[in-house]
Design a protein around this nucleic acid. Sequence first.
DNA 1: CTGTTAGCGCCTTCAG
DNA 2: CTGAAGGCGCTAACAG
Lengths: 336, 336
Amino acid sequence: MPPTIADVAQKAGVGVGTVSRVLNESPRVSDRTRAHVLAIIEEMDYRPSFLARGLSKGTVGVLAAIVQRMTTPSALQRLRGILDEASAAGFDVILHNVNDVTDYRNQVRDLLRPDRCAGGLLVSFKPDDEDIPLLATNPVPVVVVDGQIPGLAGLHIDDELGGRMATEHLIGLGHHRIAFIGDWEDPIGFNPSSKRLAGYRSAIAGAGLQIPAAYVKSGLHERTVTLQHINELLDLDDPPTAVVASADSHAMVAAEGARARGVLVPDDLSVIGFDDLDIAEHLDLSTVRQPLYESGARGARMLLDLMEGSLPAPQQVEMALELVARGSTAPPSPTQ
Amino acid sequence: MPPTIADVAQKAGVGVGTVSRVLNESPRVSDRTRAHVLAIIEEMDYRPSFLARGLSKGTVGVLAAIVQRMTTPSALQRLRGILDEASAAGFDVILHNVNDVTDYRNQVRDLLRPDRCAGGLLVSFKPDDEDIPLLATNPVPVVVVDGQIPGLAGLHIDDELGGRMATEHLIGLGHHRIAFIGDWEDPIGFNPSSKRLAGYRSAIAGAGLQIPAAYVKSGLHERTVTLQHINELLDLDDPPTAVVASADSHAMVAAEGARARGVLVPDDLSVIGFDDLDIAEHLDLSTVRQPLYESGARGARMLLDLMEGSLPAPQQVEMALELVARGSTAPPSPTQ
DNA sequence: CTGTTAGCGCCTTCAG
DNA sequence: CTGAAGGCGCTAACAG
């Protein structure tokens, strides 16, 4: 059994209260006593029990991250940010992956309690409307990473603006025939695709362009589906010269599908994505960058502030987007 | 404040001991009393405090996963297996990502203690030799997922066999000029590449083949490096007709690099990977499949058994490999 | 079968 | 500045 605070106190010849004070950096201890106790602690390799401390203080050094589809590259980057920030602050992170619509409520109910964690992060995760009041008044504070929920603190981006930025980049290069590839709404997850599509439409309209209905594709977020989309687009009598994809993952596949049939990127077809995943740079893919790692880190920081009370009230922060022009977009070739 | 066991006891008109007994499914409670208490619990929406229960029982419902380079696709699959198995057993999982050689020891020391978790999983993670005895006698049990450490329970694969399987597949197809692309040892992580290379060499030797030294490439696990490798191989006077890659991630890039210069896969060049990541199937990539998700799930299960004492002694389990022949490997073309 | 009580390890008054 | 004691919520051993 590991040593307890009583063992330390006895060996140091002081009371447990004194040991507790040095542990909690109370100023009410003389330097001499403090140094002595610290030495004993070191000598015995003593560490206070998380459990006992938590019980006594009524709060634990644990954050809970509830992540929607943890395995996506973007969720992973956000998680990294959360982990780094939390561990820098000395907090452990409990991870819950949400697969099923049905179980998320139980997870929230059972996990987001003071005896399990001191705060919760909801990542790319849209609670039911009826659950929002519960979350807002939850005994432990909650921050939404990648989402804008009325009444809840969180970080988000302007997806519509992002869709517009991508499209306007293409328009600025001289493209007139611009298609869009996105995906369907997900029952529990946010799916930003439709907002980005709205931004696309807004940019198209703003430039006075007309686009055929067949230029807008959406379906499951799967490789084969995206391949089919790009092929259908290129099979059109009047194929697009550029494609806005609602995510880098779509853009990559679209570019690959185009190249596979001899359509050169960017010579014959410009492709722009969304996210700026690590591979986007390697693939030389133009994209709209959204801060992924940073959203996790700032979300965790916001949560810690909220817990500490140094943040007056829950607030929503919009993070900046950035157009990253790389080699997958270029002016349309003169012959087109 | 949430209700406590005392609140429940009072409202139910019984003692706390009785409530505790129904909570812990003790048979020493009459059915009538049990039903009544259960009803009150339901009514008050009472949940026992994890903290208090942990303190009292001396063990917590938490597992710790220490993961080497969490962001790799394979680590992620393993993690999924761990999370699913742990949560099915009612355990939370604390996640720690190890980036730095220096900090892993502290993490192990501070995290793998009875007041923080009931068991630890080390994922794709090679501790220093001198730390092994400490881990083996650690107050909370430890299981190594993806690694074979003498004295520690764990799951692993036979990397050398895997390298041989991949190479022999190619030899069986009629290839004689077979190259290898791998990567360097990582200071803290396992790096199975060298063992797979040994398997490759063994298969080559077993078939009585001679290969030029230039056929074996290794370097950083980065896209650009692999692209350079494949290009150097194809630039040789006597280029290989097939490539064994030490991981699917290498294989994907190698295939892409080959195609980019007009070398058809598998017509001009066969490529085989290792792992069988999700995308391998989509890319129609031949590979040696190792169980990733399953290694996590079985590792967690093994840990739970160890904790429960139902597993007599720590043991090491070798998981089976499987050759998955897909479209990226074929017999060499007659002209070669 | 059930109520009572003594810890689990630590923090936090409250005296001194 | 420091020691002693009560309490955090629960489990388990002990009487009844």
